[in-house]
Design a protein around this nucleic acid. Sequence first.
DNA 1: TTGACATGATACCATTTGGTATCGCATATA
DNA 2: TATATGCGATACCAAATGGTATCATGTCAA
Lengths: 116, 116
Amino acid sequence: MVSLREAVMTPDLQPAFRALADPTRRDILRMLGDREMTIAEVSENFDMTRAAVKKHLVMLSDGGLINVRAEGREKLNSLNADALRPVMHWLGWFDQFWDTRLDALKNVIEQEETND
Amino acid sequence: MVSLREAVMTPDLQPAFRALADPTRRDILRMLGDREMTIAEVSENFDMTRAAVKKHLVMLSDGGLINVRAEGREKLNSLNADALRPVMHWLGWFDQFWDTRLDALKNVIEQEETND
DNA sequence: TTGACATGATACCATTTGGTATCGCATATA
DNA sequence: TATATGCGATACCAAATGGTATCATGTCAA
């Protein structure tokens, strides 16, 4: 029996971290930020076969990072950004070790971002 | 020529993401949060040979996640948490997609954490 | 019903990954 | 100087990964 907090914040991180370890899959995630896409549409953006893209989508799905919805003979893949929260949470533990000398620089950068 | 922001916030993320993709390496990072350790010391915490641990340390070093300092015939490995910032930054892009309905739950959890 | 088409499934291949065993080298220390 | 010790390097192996080609299946449309 795990606590509510454990259940929500500490699922098995391995599938998500593994899914994020490939640049193609990270690119796919950002593409799906725009809109949900079929496998064929995703594949158009890469120089590889649809079967290869399909494998990446399976890994993303295994990590819970995308949802797949059937519509007729098409499968629409959509981003599930919430699955990135546990990953962020894990990384957040390291906040305590961040070099505070960089904070000023961080602020500068974030200021720049507001001007994008 | 890349901008300051690009140089600081968008280095090549691949070595870091790859380093984070293995549970042993993630465990090592948290161990090194306590104190810097020799290879032998890190190896004591795992059921694998020193050579295997060494390989993990090399990958962590490739990702910039640890620093290695020689002291006599020993090599002291220490956490470089700052290298996780670009990773956090990349993940932060997805904040815009997070389900706001989870924010209340997140607050509850963070409240719990203050009571640890 | 008959194609056309989007997807799924499988077999296969090369490379990377995660591990072991073993040897050599540099550095403390008796 | 010997010798023990901490580490690095290499060769090797099994399994996972990232890709291809090919065929099967379900669904839309004429």
